[in-house]
């Protein structure tokens, strides 16, 4: 039997790694990957809590897993737009360094 505390603890550890990645790294692509890691940590918490309250026989309650699917779809959309922005940023300033992207124009 897997303890639910450890599932949520693992989710918290992964989320913290993602937060540190966003705050510390300068490469825009790595920052986007860290955001993906945070979304995955939240998904793990959703799946864990859904496993803890699975509904009754004949009427399973799957709200958490449906939310995970929605988060995955939103993550895919976010990556597509985010990487589009990265490409146009690279075209305009020949770099993906966040320190150089401090102006709102050009």
């Amino acid at each position: 039997m897997i303890p639910l505390e450890h599932v949520i603890g693992l989710s918290a550890i992964l989320f913290a790694i993602g937060v540190v990645g966003v705050l510390v790294r300068r490469n825009v692509i790595v920052v986007l990957m860290s955001i993906e890691l945070m979304l995955n940590a939240v998904n793990l918490a959703f799946v864990g809590f859904n496993r803890a309250w699975p509904g009754s026989e004949g009427a399973p309650s799957l709200d958490g897993q449906v939310f995970v699917l929605m988060v995955i779809a939103v993550a895919a959309a976010e990556v597509a737009v985010g990487l589009g922005i990265v490409i146009s940023m690279f075209r305009n300033r020949d770099s993906v360094d966040l320190e150089e992207a401090s102006l709102l124009r050009w």
Partner: peptide, 25 residues
């Protein structure tokens, strides 16, 4: 987090399979 979370119960039949998730979706 440390205390206060329940033990994982037994799951109903078909929980988490494509059929149940599809019906919910």
């Amino acid at each position: 987090l440390a205390p206060g979370l329940p033990e994982l119960p037994a799951v109903p039949a078909g929980f988490g399979g494509h059929r149940a998730v599809g019906i919910a979706l």
